[in-house]
Simulated assay, not measured.
Amino acid sequence: MKAIPVLSLALLALTAGACQAQTLAESGATPFTVTEVARFDQPWAMVFLPGGDALITEKAGKLKWLSGKTIRDVAGAPKVLEEGQGGFGDVALAPDFAQSGMIYLSWVEKGEGSLSGAVVGRGKLTLDAAKPRLEGLEVIWRQTKVEGDGHFSHRLLFSPDGKYLYVTSGERQKKTPAQDLTVNLGKVLRLLPDGKPAPGNPFAGKGGQSAEIWSYGHRNLYGLGFDKDGRLWENEMGPQGGDEVNLIVAGKNYGWPIVSNGSDYDDTDIPDHSTRPEFEAPKVWWNPSISPSSMLIYTGKKFPKWQGDMFITALSGQALIRVHLDGDKATKGDQWPMERLREVEQGPDGDIYLLEDGDGRLLKLSPKA
């Protein structure tokens, strides 16, 4: 009998894993039921509106309004540069949305020549069934433009008190800018709702874009969330391994590209965090990579045992992952195999919603009866 090559065995294992993911998600071998709500074309992010409707961004540049089972295009969405990892990004409601109707969006725009960068904009949402639209969209923040089509990050999160807008800005696969305090790449940023640097940021006065920076030494940051005590948590993709969950502290350096618990893509070793204690180490990390793509810190009542825990969607890991939070400590919890997942959100009903990266399904996770 002819031996099966090692590579073929690996492919068989991956195929088996994908089949297992489908079986687990749809056979009921989970603590929740999975219901398909709708389908979209390369969805990237979503946010629920008061009343239960939702807005969904599609990577190519569409803003969708989901109301019941009806999906409508929202006019006035920005023109985006869809290239590589770039395109339409996050969507968030202004803290005073109920009064102002303002929403915030992130996307990638083209610069001069081959340069590109993420931007954040805001505009007024009008949900008229005949003509849903976004009006007065203005750009309030821009990422340093460089060449390349990766690591834009551009996740958005308002502080619980609504005073500050936090923005993740990837290092654009350039590595060294993450340690440069004069540029806003490889950073968590703290801004005012109008996009200006927030007063009291730790590096204001060091020149360039330093006044925007809250923390630095990050790689590709795809998740942000506040816990019940007001701590800010973040997740990011490492290189080959070393994906991280970090507790974000103002002014701290998280070490990229000097340290990582993974290896570079050419298999060059990168010193682990433990070798350089002056850098903030991750609270949880994965090797091999899971490719974390979003974060939710759960506050609902449908899953009472999970209140206060973190949920992470994984792309290459093809899973929904629970991380238990206990004060400033984090430990790995459940990992439920699924498809490639792009986004996790908590619905107003306390159920958990997922956006798939491939088939584009919006899935609702409800507790089993």
Rank of each mutant, 00 (worst) to 15 (best):
A330V: 10
L320K: 00
G208E: 05
E236T: 10
S260G: 11
P202M: 06
Q307T: 15
P337T: 03
M310P: 00
P202D: 07
L247N: 03
F279K: 10
Y265T: 12
V245F: 11
N246D: 14
A250C: 03
N253M: 10
K302Y: 13
S263P: 09
W285S: 02
V323R: 00
P288C: 03
S215Q: 02
G327A: 10
P239H: 08
T313C: 10
I312R: 00
G200A: 01
H273R: 11
N235H: 10
P257I: 14
I258D: 11
M310L: 13
W306H: 03
W233H: 02
I321L: 15
P337E: 05
P271G: 09
S215E: 04
I248S: 01
A281L: 05
V249T: 11
P282E: 05
I258K: 09
R219F: 11
Q240M: 15
R340Q: 10
H324F: 12
G317F: 00
K302I: 14
L247F: 04
G238C: 13
Y254S: 06
S274G: 15
I213P: 00
P239T: 13
L247D: 05
D229H: 07
E234N: 12
P288T: 11
N246I: 06
V259I: 12
A314V: 09
G255Y: 08
Y222E: 10
A250I: 04
P202A: 07
K206D: 04
